[in-house]
Amino acid sequence: MSAVTHVRLSAAVLEMDEAAEVARITTGLREALRSKLRRRGWSSRYPGVSIAPYAQALRCRP
């Protein structure tokens, strides 16, 4: 007895809202670059080098 008996396996299970997915990836990528990578030490990757140009490129505050 499968756990997903209400879903018939077909190509339809892989269908998605492409526009929504693009928006999700766009937002997620910006967030990853602005926040997550910074928290992982991006700004201090090279001591003495400011993250400002990088942040400016993303139009966010360093």
Partner: peptide, 19 residues
């Protein structure tokens, strides 16, 4: 892709075979 989706969602080999 379908096989991985089926495996991830705990479908049976019989369900994958039919598809």
């Amino acid at each position: 892709d379908l096989a991985l989706w089926a495996y991830n969602h705990h479908l049976t080999a019989a369900e994958l075979a039919e598809t």
